[in-house]
């Protein structure tokens, strides 16, 4: 397998920026338009800009769910979820209705409710991330880093051992998770200049 990174095209998002990020680091990428292509790549990225319900609907309708479970959950292929791609790992999501997620990491995706009502939602811009598990994507990185966020909903989980970093915007929320070979960030490493590229570089080094 010569292709380092497969990026899932499920009609939700900015595939190009993700591909560009990895390519700039010397990684070979392939945009995956059919679930059968998952077996051709060493690592898989689920990007995503959009609403939870549409994202899940597109993944199911196009046959990704079953094949992803086979390759990632059972097969142990390194996986990176970005933004919506992280949220879809949860059990349920509440954006525009109540939706079932992939349920790879038990949790719920809910709208951010700030303690202080003057805090603005969506959370748009660069914010500090406090790394609590400096491994995986964060290996060799500083404890405090700044990344670009653009979202209104956040992942909430009871299993705090999967959390690798937190962010605060009116409430403390999960900025990234890792569960075995499954990595995910709420922020956009592909849009976070050198800090973001450092994380993508670490993902490129992760082997099944």
């Amino acid at each position: 397998m010569a292709i380092d990174i497969g990026i899932i095209d499920y009609g939700m998002g900015n595939l190009r920026s993700v591909a560009n990020g990895f390519e700039s680091l010397g990684g070979k990428t392939l945009i995956l338009t059919s679930p059968a292509q998952l077996s051709e790549v060493e690592r898989v990225v689920l990007p995503g800009v959009g609403a939870f319900g549409d994202g899940m609907k597109n993944l199911s309708e196009r046959g990704w769910v079953e094949k992803l479970e086979e390759q990632v959950v059972q097969g142990g292929k390194p996986f990176l979820g970005l933004c919506l791609g992280m949220q879809l790992l949860a059990t349920t999501g509440t954006e525009y209705g109540h939706h079932q997620g992939l349920n790879w990491i038990p949790g719920k995706v809910d709208r951010i409710v700030p303690r202080d009502p003057s805090i603005r939602i969506p959370h748009i811009g660069w914010n500090d991330v406090d790394v609590v598990r400096p491994e995986g994507l964060f290996a060799g990185q500083p404890k405090l880093m700044t990344f670009y966020f653009v979202h209104s909903y956040a992942f909430q989980t009871d299993s705090s051992d999967v959390v690798t970093s937190y962010c605060d915007h009116g409430m403390k929320f999960v900025a990234s998770v890792q569960y075995g070979n499954i990595h995910a960030t709420q922020f956009h490493p592909e849009k976070s200049q050198k800090h973001g590229l450092a994380l993508l570089k670490n993902f490129l080094a992760i082997k099944a």
């Binding site: 959009g50 525009y96 979202h151």
Partner: peptide, 8 residues
């Protein structure tokens, strides 16, 4: 907003 999320 429904298709891509309010944030964009």
């Amino acid at each position: 907003a429904e298709a891509f999320g309010s944030q964009c």
